[in-house]
Design a protein around this nucleic acid. Structure first.
Lengths: 252, 252
DNA sequence: AACTCAGGTTGACATGGATCAAGTGTCAGG
DNA sequence: CCTGACACTTGATCCATGTCAACCTGAGTT
């Protein structure tokens, strides 16, 4: 069937079985044979570039998307220009789960930097899941995890002040990046201050001031998008979610 | 006077097939035979009373729960007394979806008034769903809907001011109640002002002042927990979610 | 009836963060 | 090297809402 491409994009278009994300993503817990079956329905497009949309609010829902490399933000465009950033998505994270119910995307998804994305046609996925119990189970887990994460965010927006919010954001990024094999203390943020503020329910100015203050307090070293965490524990305490308070870690 | 009785006691231990909620709940879209199979795994306990817990944060996850009559609140107990109310659940709504991922409840669920609850052992449910595609699909939809609702809530907490929040809350209650055959404009709130404030990220005093103001402005008639909506359209506009802005209505 | 007590309302005041208004890099294109 | 655009920072001010405190009200209880 499909001619194998043995060239430069090969590392971007890796099959699920050789993808380093398989333990975060849908293939988790599947046997080799079932991974192949899943792999056969995944579509891998050319890399997308900063500003490209995976989908826009209002479009018909057909597929789920998984970030393979790069990062994506989802946001709800509100009437008259304003928007609410709903999340930033790193490799291995699934996008579009909220659209299953209405068969229609309520939010938009835009890539923040050059990114490779896997597309999973949902109807075919559903058929497959019906015949692979562990895939079905993993899908329930991923949906459930999305709900827990939203719940954490509700707590953040409902109860935390500006300082706690930014600390929680930085801790979350740190954990998620390190789970992907990157440094937990030295990373680049792919989103702007404005997007961070929007996501956290804060004004840009507040975010900027907090970055400065955290740096003055020796918690961070910041240079534009480059962040070096100097005192992760202090940030965790500030964020109000000590690692042992919950029963297990679950951020994706 | 008491219209709450409409869905009250005649309903308590009815089987799924004769439950008035079947179009909101898991049986939606199932054929009669499959409804029977689902029904056979559902456990129906005696009514619970105000303050009883369905589960508490930290407990092992075994079952999902569906409100049959009455109402339930879910909340995340935080260290040292504080809590964040995560949601209020009306008949037909499923509770516990966030615990699938960790097999452990991160939040607690407490009934707000005498309530009948259906318990659905999750493992048996999962087995059943694997053999009934339309049940699996409905489960995906319900999980997805939960995510959309959380998303709406993120928008509320991230972008809306106090007045918009309370208006959105009242509109949501109105819609959900009317979808259950109750009046959209005359109802009793089963939660306290404190719980409303907590849920909306506002101080009790702010909620109280807003109720007074809405009444002064002729939008509502309020007597303690009894609310009569006088101008639903105005509330909808204030809430910033005009009914036609989204493509379909979906609040459960 | 009087007492109690929790939930609710109302008023006075304080403040965290929004908003407004200048700057200050930094980078792309000419 | 300039120029303009844009993201970010910093400072000054304002205001929505939180906080604190007093009081009310209704439903039980004695």
């Amino acid at each position: 069937m499909n001619q194998r491409k043995v060239i430069s994009f090969e590392n971007i278009r890796v099959a699920c079985k050789s993808c380093t994300l398989s333990q975060l993503c849908l293939p988790m817990g599947l046997c080799a044979e079932d991974v192949e079956r899943l792999d056969s329905i995944v579509k891998r497009s050319r890399p997308l570039h900063r500003g490209d949309h995976l989908f826009r609010g209002g479009e018909r829902f057909r597929s789920l998307y998984v970030v393979k490399t790069g990062s994506v933000k989802t946001y709800a465009p509100s009437e008259e220009g304003g928007e609410q950033v709903l999340g930033f998505h790193l490799p291995g994270e699934i996008i579009g789960l909220d659209a299953i119910d209405q068969s229609c995307h309520a939010c938009s998804a835009k890539v923040l930097e050059t990114s490779a994305i896997c597309e999973i046609p949902f109807q075919r996925f559903e058929e497959l899941a019906a015949s692979i119990p562990s895939l079905q189970h993993q899908m329930y887990r991923l949906l459930s995890k999305e709900i827990s994460q939203d719940t954490d965010m509700l707590l953040l927006l409902g109860k935390k002040n500006a300082e706690e919010r930014l600390a929680a954001f930085l801790v979350s990024m740190s954990k998620r990046l390190s789970k992907r094999g990157l440094s937990a203390t030295d990373f680049y943020l792919s989103m702007s201050r404005h997007e961070i503020g929007n996501y956290l329910g804060l004004a840009v100015e507040t975010v900027s001031r907090l970055f400065t203050r955290f740096q003055d307090e020796g918690l961070l070293k910041v240079d534009r998008k480059h962040v070096q965490v100097r005192n992760l524990t202090a940030l965790e305490n500030m964020a109000g979610t000590p690692p042992s308070a919950t029963h297990q870690q679950h951020s994706n």
